[in-house]
Amino acid sequence: MDLHPVLKDRTVTDQDSQNKKTALYALHVELGGKMVPFAGYMLPVQYADAGIMLEHQRARESAALFDVSHMGQVRITGADRVAALEALVPADVETLAVGRTRYSFFTNETGGILDDLMITQAEDGLILVINAACKDADIAHLRANLSGDVKLEVLDSLSLLALQGPGSAAVLGQWAPEATTMPFMSTRDFVIAGIDCRVSRSGYSGEDGYEIAMESDRAVDLARALLEHDAVSASGLGARDSLRLEAGLCLYGHDIDTTTTPVEAGLTWAMQKRRRTEGGFPGAAVIQKQLADGAPRRLVGLKPEGRAPCREGTELTDDSGRVIGKITSGGFGPTVGGPVAMGYLETAFASAGTTVQAMVRGKPRPCEVVKMPFVAHSFYRG
């Protein structure tokens, strides 16, 4: 299948030794993982005994285990931590109950997105999970903007696993029965296979599932315990990318970045009403104007004609050949059974049912604008 360019098969070079290794690196190699550099880490793109198509299918039908330890985890403490974070993100953190998680993003003064992240209200502070490629910049951004009694702790002793798929709840339930009834975007502490874990019912596949944080020196033990279950198989970056694309989930640095606003990206649902009205975060005036007047472009789903995927960077034109947008993510959707893509179009062309042209090697190829997700979400909501 066609992969995102950063995930394409390649020979590991001496330069790759400069990339970091997660606590599960040796286990990936043992399991036949094809290791590639990604966001400064060596991670498996796929495993020899399966391949991306099968790994994708297993996540849709049973349970897939992903190593996402390259992600950053930090804790913010202090009496004013909520106000301090709300000055940087447009999420309503004030009403976030203990044990609940919310998706958000850091914005800049022009309303662009510096990074997207997950925020959890815990008893001992706010726990943030941030993207690996933006990790250092995010930490510097937080340190530069937190003051007074508000402190930042980088949780670099932790690893993170994602167990995704409809069989995930039954797997965790054998150790923690209460995990099976956790609603989507909730977080609890459990002992899994004798290991202390912070478990969030969330993920990046569109399927039911969990993200599990634990001390890195126990990560291999936990991974082996999960993989012993018949329903669970190891999966790599390739399947993670195809799953999130079918689910219509944005990839930072591609579908969203410092030049895209949350309104353009269709992420207004992640800005709660109080924050949309009151503002008080970077770029609020720009975002509020787009909320009121509309954005000049919108992120849309696209289904290209034929079987071959349209890649990131492909220009989109109207019937006269005028460039009206660009594809930001594209690949083959194993569950869809054909190519799927996401990209930005001028708002006048962004309605579902519109046909635009993707310029592939200089030739126009019809693409239909469709609603996302391409595959319906299966999040557990209780």
Rank of each mutant, 00 (worst) to 15 (best):
P44L: 01
Y47T: 10
A48D: 12
D49T: 12
A50I: 05
G51I: 04
I52M: 15
M53S: 10
L54P: 00
E55N: 01
E55M: 06
E55C: 06
A59E: 11
R60F: 01
S62H: 07
D67N: 07
Q73A: 13
V74G: 02
I76E: 02
T77W: 03
G78F: 07
A79Y: 02
D80F: 04
R81D: 04
V82Y: 10
A83I: 00
L85Q: 09
E86S: 06
L88E: 06
V89E: 10
A91P: 05
D92H: 07
V93A: 11
E94P: 00
E94Y: 08
T95C: 01
L96T: 13
A97S: 15
R100K: 15
F105Y: 09
F106L: 15
T107C: 14
N108V: 13
E109I: 08
G112C: 06
G112F: 08
D115E: 15
D116W: 14
T120K: 01
Q121W: 00
A122P: 00
D124W: 01
D124R: 07
G125L: 15
L126H: 07
L126P: 04
V129M: 04
D136F: 01
I139S: 00
I139L: 11
L142Q: 11
A144V: 02
A144H: 02
A144W: 00
N145L: 11
N145E: 02
L146A: 02
L146E: 08
S147R: 07
D149A: 12
V150E: 04
L152H: 08
V154C: 10
V154T: 14
V154G: 07
L155K: 03
D156A: 13
L158E: 15
L161Y: 01
A162N: 09
Q164E: 14
G167T: 06
S168T: 05
A170T: 11
L172W: 01
Q174V: 12
W175P: 03
W175C: 03
A176I: 04
P177T: 04
P177M: 10
E178H: 05
A179I: 03
